[in-house]
Design a protein around this nucleic acid. Structure first.
Lengths: 195, 195
DNA sequence: CATTTTCTACCGACCGGCAAGTAGGTCGGA
DNA sequence: TCCGACCTACTTGCCGGTCGGTAGAAAATG
């Protein structure tokens, strides 16, 4: 939410937060703006003071999430040069993001294709840029080891698959804490069960 | 669809098939019974001769998919004893399933929680049984190597994450063919980038 | 300082449309 | 004649979205 915090006033932020939870828990299609209005203690009409349409609301949520994600990736890339360390940082960041922002993390996986037209494209473009961070770092990692990685894109997706699938099962309060999980993913991807 | 083929007549099968495609492509909530009726060349009311409600239709699709999945896992488990080989066969089966039955594969990931009550429980139970196959085999594999796997459940989910995330990116007609992908996943999980 | 205007942040009532689902009829084949 | 396989016509209800209005705070004005 970082980027939008300044522009939106407090009430808008509150609505935004409740919307994330509600849309995530019920799913974008099932959750009606009546539900949302009730949840924030307003009328439906009142909500439309803050956004133009239901789809715009979803866009604002998903787009801001991608902005946060890209900002995090950029920050790491600037700070960490060594590909192996950067990869580790990416994974850790990804797991952290999920834990601290579960609603938006799930939303972007489950409901991204509820967006249409330009909104959809905008979000998709940011996802491409996001993928490029992984891809480039993984490629450099392979080069550094003198073993270029075949099927680079596939490997990127396998790694991201492990990271993103956690939305289906992971409970941060369980026995496995976020940093440990991130570490587990990293080691398994590098060395498999052998390492 | 295997289990249901005998019970349903041909027309029902056709409706079922179109429903899989439509619900998958549009999403369960967005796709209306009207859309489905149009797609199969019937009226909405006519469809209700074949199922009681929209949700039951979704249930039939997802439940039959889980039956097929469980049958496949069971068959492999009976045929392949060695845990490593069995694991490899599971992965291959999983990838094949996705390629040959893309619609239902995506549906069960995207729209399983559109089911409610008993229907939801039934499908969830079958998913638990499905997970148990992986878990048990992975455990035996660890024992066989004399290196029991810590955080067994997490490892199961990481592996399944790689297998299931392919619905987000994999195109069977691309440069990487299904058996190769399955092999890639297997090797990466066992040995990581090292192997 | 008092008064008037303007603006912010909402509300209640309503709209057209489409959703799932149904009641009752029809019609061709066994 | 009867039944399986449909259709027409309909109900009910919620959907996203809009309209005109308004209480109260803030700002402008004399």
């Amino acid at each position: 939410m970082a980027g939008r915090k300044t522009a939106m006033d407090q009430r808008a932020q509150e609505i935004f937060g409740v919307a994330c939870r509600l849309l995530c828990e019920m799913g974008y299609e099932r959750a009606s703006i009546r539900d949302l209005a009730e949840a924030v203690g307003m009328t439906k009409a009142g909500l439309y003071y803050y956004f133009k349409s239901k789809e715009e609301l979803l866009f604002l949520i998903l787009d801001s999430y991608m902005d946060d994600l890209l900002a995090g990736m950029e920050e790491i890339s600037a700070r960490v040069q060594d590909p192996e360390e950067r990869l580790k940082a990416y994974i850790r960041f990804q797991v952290e993001r999920y834990c601290e922002d579960t609603y938006r993390s799930k939303l972007i996986i489950n409901d991204e294709n509820c967006l249409s037209g330009e909104w959809f494209q905008t979000v998709k473009d940011k996802q491409r840029r996001y993928l490029a961070y992984w891809r480039e770092t993984l490629e450099r990692f392979g080069q550094q080891r003198g073993r270029p990685i075949a099927h680079l894109s596939a490997h990127v997706m396998l790694l991201i698959g492990m990271c993103n699938w956690i939305y289906q099962w992971y409970q941060p309060e369980g026995e496995l804490r976020p940093p440990e999980l991130a570490d587990l993913i990293f080691r398994r991807f590098l060395h498999g069960l052998d390492g």
